[in-house]
């Protein structure tokens, strides 16, 4: 029962309607705070500027791009109230399969001699298709067998990694065509960043302004109400998981084009980084709440921290410990905020 309903019919809520700043604002402040923290420590401990180094900033955002592309897909899955644990393995699987379509004829170690010197969009399409197929299977399992997303995507996580190893008997694939490598190094090496930002912008618009986005939020907010509102939950969920798989495939293409090699062990734990980015960015694991912009900032926070610790020469062990703590703190803060919201009513 609310406490602020007036009796007279023409009255409005008595509580003043404060124009609340979007949650993303506070996350942005956290990002700036962390950057400032490293800047100050940098002057004291290392004697140089953290932010005043263009190549460092470029490396941060390049590293963030691959995780960020995955996180845009994972965010949508989480908004439906689900989870995708398979993205890291799907990256490896897409990478291995697509890489065999991307080799240059002059490379000494050719996997498929018939598939050399293909135009760049062939391996790209293959990579996206493999990712989307994995996503389709995830979505199909979740909607048709009704097993929890955690289990379905856990299964995919293990199997996709297996496929990635089996596909080339574990041997890495290198020697990509010049045109394919542009995906990772084109536009003055900014290609991954551009792809990431385009993907984020597109899905930001999709989530906020299209029917598809509205339905995604609706399913996460209340699946039963969504069904009664005429939403086909099964087909919608399959689409959302397919998008997540497709974006994992795209991230794989960007990653192998940039590092010029694909191996079955790549993408390890990427799914957790992507989930962490979303959660730090304010996406609620219970579904129905969260924005792409938050996830983008969340990914940047992870990237800045990683780079900052390296810059301060913090031992890698400590880095992981601190990263883990930050993820937990982010969720605690988020829960606290939600509690405060529901206490109001």
């Amino acid at each position: 029962m609310t406490t602020h309903t007036a009796t007279t019919p023409n009255a409005t809520l008595e509580a003043p309607s404060k124009r609340r700043l979007p949650q993303e604002f506070s996350i942005l402040l956290v990002l700036l705070g962390i950057a400032a923290f490293f800047e100050v420590l940098g002057w004291f401990l290392v004697g140089q500027s953290f932010l005043g180094n263009m190549s460092r900033l470029q490396i941060i955002i390049l590293q963030v791009s691959v995780i960020g592309i995955i996180a845009v897909g994972v965010t949508q899955v989480i908004i439906t109230g689900g989870i995708d644990l398979s993205s890291g393995s799907v990256v490896a699987m897409s990478a291995m399969v697509a890489a065999t379509f991307a080799q240059d004829a002059n490379w000494p170690k050719i996997i498929h001699p018939a598939l050399v010197d293909l135009p760049w969009f062939v391996p790209l399409t293959v990579g996206l298709a493999v990712g989307a197929a994995a996503g389709f299977i995830n979505g199909w399992l979740i909607t048709k067998t009704r097993i929890p997303p955690f289990i379905a995507t856990l299964g995919m996580m293990v199997s996709a990694r297996g496929i990635a190893r089996w596909y080339t008997d574990g041997s890495p694939v290198s020697g990509f065509t010049e045109s394919f490598a542009m995906l990772g190094n084109g536009m003055g090496r900014w290609a991954p960043v551009v792809i990431f930002l385009v993907v984020a912008a597109v899905f930001h618009i999709v989530m906020r302004y299209t029917r598809f986005g509205k339905f995604t939020y609706a399913i996460g907010a209340n699946p039963q109400a969504a069904r009664v509102s005429g939403i086909n939950i099964e087909s919608h969920l399959i689409k959302v998981y397919m998008i997540a798989g497709l974006l994992a495939g795209l991230a794989a293409m960007v990653a192998i084009a940039r590092i010029k090699t694909a191996q079955a062990g790549m993408g390890l734990m990427y799914e957790l980084d992507a989930i962490a980015a979303a959660v730090i960015g304010g996406v609620s694991l219970s579904g129905g709440r969260g924005r792409i912009t938050g996830t983008v900032i969340g990914a940047l926070i992870l990237g800045v921290m990683l780079s900052g610790f390296t810059f301060l020469r913090v031992d890698a062990y400590y880095q992981d410990i601190i990263k883990g703590a930050i993820i937990v703190v982010a969720v605690v803060v988020d829960m606290h905020r939600q509690n405060k919201r529901s206490k109001k009513t």
């Binding site: 509205k214 969504a226 129905g288």
Partner: peptide
């Protein structure tokens, strides 16, 4: 209009307009 506002009616995290429009934007 379903029986249980909370269970099968409202999208609690969403705003009034988003709640109101969900059946018509097909």
């Amino acid at each position: 209009l379903t029986e249980d506002r909370k269970e099968t009616g409202c999208f609690l995290p969403l705003d009034i307009q988003e709640n109101a429009q969900m059946a018509v934007i097909h």
